[in-house]
């Protein structure tokens, strides 16, 4: 690299906490979260936007953490799986995943949970087909997805009844 590249200051809110840091422009958001913030719940899989393991929420919308620069999060609110876990908003999803054995190695699970959270906000009563379509951008190489769809269906039904 040339020595003319300057680090840029980024000020963002991560899981409710205001953070100011210096980053190189080329730093991916997910690498910033994992390496500088040590929030390693967000995983790095394919590193080019295919697998969904790096899914985080920016200003409430899910995005690929590997397809955004950390500096682009300046002034925005980032929520990672750690934030979703702390807030308790996905406790029922986590429980349903556990009970239905909807994870095996668990590598895809944080990204799955972030995507499912947004899906259920937009569509609280999804069909199995709609669940599969929404999660088509989140790869799981263990479960064959069936158990994941089951777990989500259970949560959607429980939330409806609540």
């Amino acid at each position: 690299m040339t020595n003319q590249i300057e680090q840029i200051q980024v000020t963002t809110t991560v899981n409710g906490e205001k953070v100011t840091a210096l980053v190189e422009p080329r730093t991916n958001l997910v690498d910033f979260l994992r390496n500088q913030m040590e929030l390693t719940g967000t995983h790095v899989g394919c590193e080019h936007g295919v697998c969904g393991a790096c899914t985080v929420r920016i200003d409430g919308e899910i995005v690929r953490g590997c397809l955004m620069l950390a500096i682009q999060a300046d002034g925005l609110e980032v929520v990672t799986i750690e934030g979703s876990d702390d807030s308790g908003e996905i406790a029922d999803l986590q429980k349903a995943f556990h009970e239905r054995n909807a994870l095996q190695c668990g590598f895809c699970t944080p990204g799955m949970l972030m995507a499912i959270t947004e899906m259920l906000e937009k569509n609280p009563d999804p069909s199995r087909q709609e669940i599969r379509e929404y999660l088509s951008g989140n790869y799981c190489r263990c479960t064959g997805y069936e158990a994941i769809v089951d777990a989500i269906e259970t949560v959607a039904n429980t939330r409806k009844g609540a």
């Binding site: 080329r26 620069l69 500096i71």
Partner: peptide, 11 residues
């Protein structure tokens, strides 16, 4: 110590 994927660029 941060690992970076793209080559360096200005922004």
């Amino acid at each position: 110590e941060v690992q970076l994927k793209p080559s360096a660029f200005n922004y």
